[in-house]
Design a protein around this nucleic acid. Structure first.
Lengths: 383, 383
DNA sequence: GACAGATGTCCATCCTCATGG
DNA sequence: TCCATGAGGATGGACATCTGT
């Protein structure tokens, strides 16, 4: 409380500390920043003065000269550049009500609850366990370094421009971009502007950028080998969107491996990584191939949807039909039966993505680098 | 690419724009900030000059004088102040490996994947669908205002100090705090320091602060009334931690309503809001009350755990046992049978929380205000 | 070379004062 | 008198650089 007033008037500055300690501003600055060349006694004196006056460095002033904000933008980029293959739902998403004045209406009505932003496409991003894992990974790496992520969403041209502006304005030192759509223009825009960015998953168009990615195809292979080892031969797949590299590669890896082992025909259906789409896909596959004994889904959410449909149709898992998912998200462990799945180490990938960005910030001229992560089969009960 | 070099040397400043436009700095500033008193023609001229030289305002310089960062801290606060009742798992959580030098090791080994921060307590926060809903709500409100959330985690004394420092340093203008533990000292610290903050859920100790909260007790009542209307009389409850107001109030509301309708005895077990704890609780309840015909769980995750156990024990839901959850999280809709649940409008609450903070920032002297949200029964298949 | 002081720098905004219409 | 605009110094606070002992 006592501080509250002081705050509103004037916070103590370097100058104040210097005066209190009887040294120069420069010396205080040296102590604050841990410069080596200050005698222990003086350090003590300055530290005491800092504590006495309650000094905290002003980040804006520091940033003005160091040109570092200590902030990293974490961008969830969901919108396609051109009208692309986003699920039909998105079509009618209303624009945000743009408030020009940052000051909210003083007389906001008490009862009318504010907009809850029920935008389906946006909500889906944050509801997906994937988002939480990304955040956990990024935070785990950044926090010990005293850096923090600024959360941004890029879903249309205006919001993409906002991301670029923020970086140019120095609101963040660089961007970690999780881009969902292959037609996303954001990666290209960032590269063109020469802004520091690292991507989760390789951008569709070849760009000289840093990114982390997964050996998707190999993951598909692991799933196939597991099913083959169990003697399953009537297998089917629930693929992700084929417009995405991840969608294609996981399916390819699965089908190729099956073919190599004599299973030439693998019926598949395309979903969109949601549980609902997994249910629809499973129904369709059961109609086409009533005798199937194994299913590979390109992510856990769709696999869970498949589990539901199989149970509803009286197929026992794994006795009648084996199910293998992808990601090893929280959904896999909480499903019943527990889901056998191909692990994607999202947290480690996100952490590494952050590390690559810091490398780029420290050495702007170092060559772009990509890091590929391996998958791993996590055997549980479903297959 | 072309810009990249320019960037490293000198970005254009207001002065440059002024020169290019043949006007004064003041005029450029007026145009940039939308001051009313600039003639349309001049505005045009200045806008063109801005575009021509590629000017973007420097946030640090602006913040230095306006004392606004345009950033809002979103703090997930999970650790208890004293050694409190967090679930046993947390006990051995290792400290972060503190890296003093912000520069990462240049020769980071390629193969050793970086720490994925497998800290269980932290991971649980981000894996919970609750987190995504908070983010979605906050972002939905802040984005149209061109404000952005800075994600922070407070789990021990050091990280709490970091949150306070960031606010004092002006890294963020205020904080939105989602505090899990009742013994959390962060709310008290923020109040004491006079820093602008709004809380999700009322702090345990009475404090003169702004917050949003839910009519938890009323939610418990809705669940009870639903079960009573179905003629269920042998009901049990899976409560949340009783150290939390939300845990107690939901249970109280449920039990009180049952008592008022002649059901005096409601056996209950305490869980910790995870699916696993819900399973354990359900097993225990079935042993104690084999004849039960209705269960109320204090959140959806525990309700889903209960569903699994009931199925495993051959009880049909809802025919034999009705199950009602709480939250209406994504887990409710994706469960089978779909979960009847008490809705907590998390997104709207989070948005409102952000709005309250902006009110406080614009009018520091306005009195603290709390907003209570109502629950609502969402009837699906489970009860 | 170890240490510390003095001063210029980063850039947008606020201010005053003046000017022309 | 009023209004749009110019001109340019002062300001915010920390760091960089240079100098001097």
């Amino acid at each position: 409380m006592a501080i509250s007033d002081a705050q509103r008037t004037a916070l103590p500055t370097l100058e104040d500390v210097a005066r209190a300690a009887g040294v120069s501003r420069a010396t205080v600055s040296r102590v604050v920043n841990g410069a080596p060349s200050v005698s222990p006694e003086l350090q003590r004196v300055v530290q005491d003065a800092i504590a006495a006056v309650g000094y905290v460095p002003n980040r804006a002033a520091r940033q003005l000269i160091t040109r570092r904000s200590g902030v990293i933008a974490l961008v969830m980029s969901i919108a396609p550049g051109s009208a692309a293959d986003a699920s039909a739902l998105d079509a009618g998403a209303p624009d945000d009500a743009v408030l020009r004045d940052p000051a909210p209406d003083g007389a906001a009505s008490e009862d009318a609850s504010p907009d809850a932003s029920a935008d389906t496409a946006v909500d889906r991003v944050f509801a997906d366990p994937f988002f939480g894992r990304i955040v956990a990974g990024v935070l785990g790496f950044l926090r010990p370094l005293h850096l923090h992520p600024l959360l941004m969403l890029a879903e249309d041209e205006a919001s993409r421009a906002l991301v670029l502006d923020h970086l140019r304005q120095g609101a963040a030192d660089g961007a970690l971009v999780v881009s969902i759509d292959p037609a996303d223009p954001l990666p290209g825009l960032l590269v063109q502007a020469g802004l520091p960015a690292v991507f989760f998953a390789r951008p569709e168009r070849p760009l000289p950028v840093r990114y982390v990615d997964l050996a998707h195809q190999d993951g598909g292979r692991l799933a196939a080998e597991r099913l083959l080892a169990q003697g399953r031969r009537q297998v089917a797949a629930i693929a992700g969107p084929l417009s995405l590299h991840a969608g294609r590669a996981r399916l390819d890896g699965f089908c190729d491996t099956m073919a190599r082992h004599g299973v030439a025909y693998v019926p598949y259906t395309v979903g969109n990584f949601t549980q609902d789409s997994g249910e629809r896909a499973m129904r369709e596959l059961l109609e086409r191939e009533p005798e199937l004994d194994g299913v590979f889904a390109a992510n856990d959410l769709m696999a869970v949807g498949a589990l539901h449909v199989l149970r509803e149709r009286g197929r026992r898992v794994p006795q009648d039909v084996a199910v293998i998912g992808f990601d090893d998200s929280s959904a896999a462990a909480s499903a019943r039966p527990r889901l056998t799945t191909v692990r994607q180490p999202v947290e480690a990938m996100a952490a590494r993505m952050a590390q690559l960005l810091l490398e780029r910030l420290d050495e702007p001229d170092s060559p772009p680098r990509a890091v590929l992560f391996d998958t791993e089969l996590v055997v549980r009960a479903s297959g």
